[in-house]
Design a protein around this nucleic acid. Structure first.
Length: 665
DNA sequence: AGGAGATAGA
């Protein structure tokens, strides 16, 4: 192709180039234009203008094309470097801006006030603070250190790179501060959780625009000072969508559904972020029905859900609407299927995922863990490393809990030991917690105690709770009493701790002590969490509590229960062991012993209505008790049914009289 | 032509 300009034909006119901004224009038009320029004129000036404009487009394909044109130019002008660096700095691949900056210097071009803010932003976005430091020296050398635009991006860089001191210094030295530099400084403090300092800067500002207020609201929301956030929100002279969204996010973060929905209803306008926040709120607070209703509403008002929205677990919707299954959506789906007891579907989705990041691997491994599939978890862990994905601390939580659910003491301890030596990850309190749980369940209470004694940090309540659970299972009353009392002091509002200690006393026939604990609970105003089991039938969720008669089909259900008891008795000679009921694990409480536990009602309902080939799936909010566990095993044998129960801790697959947990839970 | 703020998977 000739590179000499042809003087006889006119180059394409500007309007033609500008038409690129029309998003209806396809890449084909761009290519045509490109070809036209080359054949008619081949002016490097025109080509770089075309590339610059193309880089401005919000579509990644256009940016890619801009890069192509750029690479074909022999001496790209500084303006094209600037455009590309600018576009790349806010693209999905900000590190690509850095080689361009390097090339710019190599070819003797001088970066200017338009280059630096974006190069610095690119460093920031790709967490390459060290490169940013280098750029900073260039800024100083070329005399731009007083440009407030550049200073703002540097403040941002240092604040992100954990060097608040340097950010402060820059801020103080800058003679030409404007709102943006002030805001960057406030944000720096906010990101470090130093709301006191942020407030000082904020109060000193003469001229605050909306962003300053929004940053402060966001900061207060992060540290949980929701009242302070609300005060600023009410005080601010002018609010935009981000203000509303920040406030909403604050309510969501602290789990305040009522206020979140109240605010959401008052919003003058809503965008995808608002809807997603509200949806996340419902999802996190265990209100799936509200979430689904809101999702329908969202579509009704014509908001197009993003990948993040459908992270709310709607596989069909994804398929019907051809939503791209990226790693976020894929991970959410894997998580959903695993938590719904459909581990093979989870595996299917996982295998189909194109790119699997560490979160995706962690999710599938954690899924295997709650199903008690240690072998699979170990295999996946191996594959993950082979695929070049570095395990992180969460990976080890998942692996350790897999060991814990399967009672693999040695395996678990080995993992804990090799975490820091082989992977450079210091075990955190949750890792120790897993191992304490593992030891305690296996009856190695002394070892568990010993581990607690040598922790490099304070054991958290979960770790102590694991030990307490172990005492409960293995009937260690002395240790249980000690740990239980300490836990109740630590978490006076946690009903499960009282129940567990009271049950430990009851098991040791110390009825007075058991009663005392219950009284203490009453005095402290703590109410028991009732055991609830749910079963889904034709899209309807049926909910049962112990001794429940509220279901319209209660008569039939209790008839079925009688039938079950008769059949179990005649087939196997089962009779309810009330001793077991007393030995109930931390949750369901002795007083409920006389009533029928909720999962039995749910199972009876499932037997009544589900096709005999269908598995009965139950979800329970507390841990399944020993008696129910035993009965469920028998039902699975006598009725020839597969029963899958998800309790608070893990899955139990009952089949032919056996449970996947091998009676270890 | 530029620099700062909100949501979203373990």
């Amino acid at each position: 192709m000739s590179r000499t300009p042809n003087p006889h034909t006119n180059p394409p006119s500007n309007p033609q180039i500008l038409s690129l901004f029309n998003p209806c224009k396809t890449l084909r038009h761009l290519k045509q234009l490109h070809a036209q320029i080359i054949t008619h004129h081949n002016s490097p000036f025109q080509l770089s203008a075309l590339a610059s404009l193309s880089a401005l487009s919000p579509f990644p394909t256009f940016l890619a094309y801009a890069k192509t044109i750029f690479h074909h130019l022999q001496n790209p002008p500084p303006s094209l470097y600037n455009s590309l660096i600018r576009a790349l700095s806010s693209s999905k691949t900000p590190p690509e801006a850095l080689p361009l900056y390097h090339a710019m210097l190599q070819s003797g071009l001088k970066p200017d006030h338009m280059t630096y803010p974006f190069v610095i932003k690119a460093c920031n976005e790709s967490s390459m603070t060290w490169f940013g430091l280098l750029v900073h020296t260039h800024v100083v050398k070329s005399g731009f250190e007083c440009d407030s635009y550049i200073v703002s991006s540097l403040i941002h860089l240092y604040a992100n790179g954990k060097d608040l001191g340097a950010a402060k210094q820059l801020f103080n030295l800058c003679s030409d501060r404007d709102v943006v530099s002030w805001n960057a400084m406030i944000d720096g403090y906010v990101k470090h959780g130093e709301m006191g300092h942020a407030r000082i800067v904020f109060d000193r500002m003469v001229c605050r625009d909306v962003i300053s207020w929004n940053t402060m609201i966001n900061g207060y929301a992060i540290v949980g000072k929701i009242d302070e956030a609300k005060r600023l929100f009410d005080e601010m002279p002018e609010r935009n969508l981000v203000s509303w969204n920040s406030m909403l996010a604050g309510f969501v973060k602290c789990g305040n559904v009522e206020d979140a929905f109240g605010l959401f209803s008052e919003m003058p306008c809503r965008d995808v972020v608002s809807w997603n926040s509200m949806l996340a709120c419902y999802a996190q607070c265990g209100k799936p029905n509200e979430a689904l209703a809101l999702f329908d509403q969202m579509r009704a008002v014509g908001i197009k859900p993003t990948e993040a929205t459908v992270g709310l677990h709607l596989h069909t919707y994804i398929n019907d609407n051809r939503i791209e299954v990226n790693s976020i959506v894929g991970t959410a789906l894997v998580d959903m299927y695993a938590k719904c007891g459909k581990i093979s579907l989870a595996t299917q989705v996982f295998n189909a995922m194109e790119s699997k990041d560490v979160l995706a691997w962690n999710t599938i491994i954690a899924g295997m863990a709650i199903h008690g599939n240690v072998k699979e978890a170990q295999q996946l862990f191996k594959e993950m490393k082979e695929a070049g994905v570095e395990p992180n601390d969460i990976t080890f939580v998942a692996m350790l809990s897999a060991c814990s659910h399967a009672g693999m003491v040695d395996e678990g301890q080995k993992l804990l030991d090799c975490m820091s030596s082989s992977y450079g990850i210091e075990p955190k309190v949750e890792h120790y917690g897993c191992v304490i749980d593992l030891l305690a369940r296996a009856g190695l209470l002394e070892e568990a105690m010993e581990l607690i004694g040598t922790l490099p940090m304070e054991p958290n309540p979960c770790a102590l709770g694991a030990l307490l659970g172990g005492c409960r299972i293995h009937g260690n009353f002395e240790l249980g009493e000690m740990v239980g009392k300490r836990l109740i002091n630590l978490q006076p509002c946690h009903s499960g701790r009282y129940i567990l200690l009271s049950n430990i006393y009851a098991a040791a026939k110390k009825w007075d002590d058991a009663r005392k604990v219950r009284n203490l609970m009453k005095v402290n105003g703590i109410s028991k969490v009732p055991g609830v089991s749910v079963i889904e039938l034709k899209g309807m969720v049926h909910r049962f509590v112990a001794g429940d008669w509220s279901h319209p089909e209660s008569n039939k259900i209790y008839e079925k229960l009688n039938e079950i008891h008769t059949r179990l008795k005649s087939a196997i000679g089962y009779s309810a062991d009330t001793g077991y009921v007393l030995l109930d694990m931390e949750e369901e409480d002795k007083e409920h012993a006389l009533a029928v536990h909720s999962e039995k009602l749910a199972i009876a309902y499932g037997l009544l209505h589900l096709d005999s080939k269908e598995a009965i799936r139950i979800v329970k909010n507390l841990r399944v008790c020993r008696d129910c566990h035993h009965v469920t095993k028998l039902i699975s044998k006598v009725y020839g049914r597969e029963i899958i129960v998800r309790d608070r801790n893990r899955f139990h697959h009952f089949e032919d009289g056996e449970c996947s947990c091998l009676d270890f839970w």
